[in-house]
């Protein structure tokens, strides 16, 4: 464990909690892509199947359980409890265009051709693009609530911090995972445009709105 990994995990946790609280407090999931949240639930489920096969640490196990629980709670709030507020018309990204190629890539490019390993690889690839339906939704409506931008910032920051963690581990632990690194770079790059808007607009007290 190093400082980048810990702050990355906490940033990830903050993002998940911010989103849950935003939906719960406002009793609404307006502006939130249910499709992205389903993809994240799939990501956690396929990656954390190793909860059943290997134990790493109490920290590792409890964070995994919290992430999975929160992901399903979020999906439940969007599609069941506050379904009436879900903006399905604007959540029109075709997720099969992500899931199918990512599934194919996971079968072709992995560390080991075994069931759990392919699911792990699938989850890494899928996570890197899972935010696209949400970003697509924002580009379609042209705006996002400020609390939603805080969520996105924490979620993007998490993988950026993990990149620093992998550099650290490369030098100090001889740890090198090409699949995670390439996917992590892709994931972080997808947020760059958003990071720019967040810093130049939201942090200066303005609402995030895109030019028409």
């Amino acid at each position: 464990m190093n400082v980048f990994r810990l702050t990355g995990d906490l940033s990830h946790l903050a993002a998940i909690i911010i989103l849950l609280l935003k939906i719960w407090k406002s009793r609404s999931c307006a502006g939130i892509s249910g499709k992205s949240q389903i993809l994240f639930a799939i990501v956690f489920t396929t990656r954390y199947l190793d909860l059943l096969t290997s134990f790493i640490s109490i920290y590792n196990t409890s964070m995994k359980v919290i992430y999975i629980g929160c992901a399903y709670a979020t999906v439940y709030l969007i599609y069941m409890k506050f379904r009436a507020t879900y903006d399905g018309n604007h959540d029109s990204f075709r997720v099969e265009f992500l899931v199918v190629p990512v599934g194919g890539l996971a079968v072709l490019v992995n560390h080991d051709f075994s069931f759990l390993e392919i699911l792990w690889t699938f989850s890494i690839y899928l996570e890197s693009v899972a935010i696209l339906p949400q970003l697509f939704m924002i580009s379609k409506t042209g705006e996002a609530e400020t609390i939603t931008t805080h969520y996105l910032f924490c979620l993007g920051l998490y993988r950026a911090l993990y990149l620093l963690n992998w550099i650290w581990r490369f030098y100090f632990e001889s740890f090198f995972d090409m699949i995670a690194i390439v996917a992590g770079v892709v994931q972080t790059v997808l947020y760059c445009d958003f990071f720019y808007l967040y810093i130049t607009k939201v942090l200066k007290g303005k609402k995030l709105s895109l030019p028409a």
Partner: peptide, 10 residues
């Protein structure tokens, strides 16, 4: 130097 990977992250 020998490099390895393991799935010990979140």
């Amino acid at each position: 130097r020998e490099f390895t990977y393991q799935h010990d992250e979140l």
